[in-house]
């Protein structure tokens, strides 16, 4: 369990750096959603299943949805290239 948590932590660092590096906004939001999902798995590993449920619902669900809607609103029509 220890090595699994360390592996997830390494992936969290990689994803959090790549969120700020990626230029495409939609791809950045998707990477951020994967970051939230891995964070939920890590909460479960750290014996906090309550936080894991909330992180999976809020971080991966609602936040991603609001980000995608914000991108759509900022860009106007979704036919343009991203």
């Amino acid at each position: 369990m220890e090595s699994f948590s360390i592996l997830i932590l390494i992936f969290l660092i990689i994803f959090s750096i790549s969120v700020s590096i990626i230029k495409n906004l939609l791809a950045s939001v998707v990477v951020f959603m994967v970051y939230s999902l891995l964070m939920a798995v890590l909460w479960q590993q750290l014996n906090a299943p309550d936080l894991a449920i909330t992180e999976a619902a809020v971080g991966a669900g609602v936040t991603t949805l609001l980000f995608v809607l914000a991108i759509r609103k900022v860009k106007g029509d979704d036919n343009e290239e991203n």
Binding site: I53, T54, G61, V62, L65
Partner: peptide, 14 residues
Amino acid sequence: SPGGGFSGGTILGT
């Protein structure tokens, strides 16, 4: 069990 008002409410809202 794990969960509660806020977590379940978030799932329902989703």
